[in-house]
Amino acid sequence: MATYVLNFQGLADYAQHFASGLALTAELAVAATAGGVALGIIGGIVRNGRKNLLYKIWTAYVELFRNTPFLVQLFFIFFGLPELGIHLSAEPAALLALIVNLGAYITEIVRAAIAVTPKGQWEAARVLGLSKWQAYRKVVLPPAIRKVYPAIVGQCVLVMLGSAVISQISCEDLTYAASYTQSITFLSFESYMAATVLYLLLAVIMRHAMLGLGKVLFRGN
């Protein structure tokens, strides 16, 4: 019976690759979260508004990005956009793909949260003279986002994990580091196990950091 002896020592020379890969994955996660959540909040408002052209465009965008694979979206942005005269290098292309993908999902989460706001909240804001925008910003959005905040956090973590495929367009992220290492050392089990642990850590830290931030942002009931 053949026994397999784990050899993590063999990865030592490639620690630097893992570290820089982890850094890129983390950086993209932070930037994608910021961009995607902002895009999603705007989208949630647009999708609760009048059924004008912007509403229709946004609806089409949400449908498109929620019903196609992320990898295909990434390829479209990296290989397709140059055909339209928009040239992006790998990392900006990956970030853009992550933001628009996350933005589509967050749009639907925020849309639902806004839609269930009691009518009385809108009416109270209106009779006090608040503009529509002031009502959104000060009255409707804070409790709405608070309500769905755990779902938003979950989606952001999911997108961070999904970012593993950006190594396909040669972004040197954590998955890329693992692939590269194993292709040279043939220590595939160890390489991907290291990547798994690092993804797990990153996901747990990200979730707790975001939930902690939520506790600071949302007071009251």
């Binding site: 009691p118 009385g120 909240q121 009416e123 109270a124 209106r126 009779v127 006090l128 003279g129 503009s131 529509k132 000060k138 009255v139 804070p142 409790p143 608070r146 949302f218 007071r219 009251g220 009931n221």
Partner: peptide, 24 residues
């Protein structure tokens, strides 16, 4: 809707369900 602000300066309203803002 454009009149709501002007009206709000003269006429107040209180509702059955209070409609306080729960996060404030």
């Amino acid at each position: 809707e454009k009149k709501a602000r002007e009206i709000s300066r003269s006429i107040g309203m209180i509702f059955q369900q209070f409609n306080l803002f729960p996060h404030l």
